[in-house]
């Protein structure tokens, strides 16, 4: 096998892995928006917070696996707290109240991580099992990237099962169209929504943990990756999981191959793609017209 082919393969894997993480974050954002109608501007901050929790759990226990279990759950609990005691209070004010509030939460989290963890880059090492390359066919693939892809698919499968096979999922799908009627059937809708918010933040949390060993943990993480998640959601169509999935993968590939061929221009490719899609379809690829 020649060098070029193996380089392409490696870039493709990198791109898909990055796309998968983007998808985890964007899917969380989409779940919250699609089901509760809340555009959670703190989503990127929650993602970053999970990366910091991951750092601390690894520092305390020495185990990345423990961090993968604990950090997203801790982050989700913070999210649930924010929903229960803050977002719920401003919901009568409509979207503007939620935007301002979640933006404030994002700033609080950013200030909080600088206060508790400082501003320097904190490294997290990949667990030994996931280090190195695996040899498949004639090509070498980095194990950790493959792990990222598999993990994202597992989370996606769990979400699909939750949404289509459980009572909670049915309640949520019914509440999307008519939350008042669901309430009138004896279902505590605010409690369900609190749980949904927690799940959305948990997904961002998984994204934060898996990306931590690659990018290191620093306070710019929320802006750098969180903003991509928003772009993914807008380009794919607000509330559409399918759109988020497709656009995430495209973005991942654009960014990895973009870096290969255009270097500094890679971020421009992504924004350009968004502009192109939105010029043709203002509601995103799979967005529904209001």
């Amino acid at each position: 096998m020649d060098v070029t082919a193996s380089m392409y393969a490696a870039q493709a894997i990198h791109g898909i892995a990055f796309g998968m993480v983007l998808f985890l974050i964007a899917a969380g954002l989409n779940v919250i928006f699609g089901m509760m109608g809340i555009l959670n501007l703190a989503h990127g901050a929650f993602f970053m917070l999970a990366a910091y929790f991951c750092y601390s759990v690894v520092a305390m226990t020495g185990s990345f696996w423990a961090a993968l279990l604990i950090a997203p759950v801790l982050t989700a609990l913070v999210g649930v707290f924010v929903e229960r005691f803050f977002i719920r209070k401003v919901q009568i004010m409509g979207a503007m109240g939620e935007l301002i509030l979640t933006l404030g939460v994002a700033m609080l989290i950013l200030g909080g991580v600088k206060f508790f963890w400082g501003t320097e880059n904190l490294p997290i090492s990949v667990p030994p099992v996931l280090e190195g390359m695996v040899h498949i066919g004639a090509l070498d693939y980095p194990i950790y990237r493959i792990f990222m892809i598999v993990l994202a698919l597992v989370v996606l499968a769990i979400m699909t099962l939750l949404l289509y096979k459980t009572r909670l999922g049915k309640i949520v799908r019914a509440a999307v169209s008519d939350r008042e009627m669901v309430n009138a059937l004896g279902i505590n809708v605010p409690l369900v929504f609190m749980f949904v918010f927690g799940i959305g933040v948990w997904m961002a949390g998984i994204g934060g943990v898996v990306i931590a060993p690659i990018l290191t943990v620093f306070p710019g993480l929320a802006d750098q990756v969180g903003m991509y998640a928003f772009i993914v959601v807008v380009t794919g169509g607000l509330g559409s999981l399918k759109g988020a999935f497709i656009v995430s993968i495209i973005f991942g590939l654009l960014s990895s191959f973009g870096i290969q061929f255009f270097s500094q221009l890679a971020p421009v490719l992504i924004v350009g793609f968004m502009a192109f899609v939105l010029a043709i379809k203002p509601h995103g690829l799979f967005g529904v017209k209001e």
Binding site: R167, K170, I171, R173, A174, V176, S177, D178, M181, V182, A184, L185, I187
Partner: peptide, 20 residues
């Protein structure tokens, strides 16, 4: 409560509507 507009859940099956 049986509302005027019926307000069944359009995306759920008859069984799932009853289930909720």
């Amino acid at each position: 409560y049986v509302p005027e507009e019926r307000r069944i859940f359009p995306e759920l099956s008859v069984m799932d509507n009853l289930f909720l």
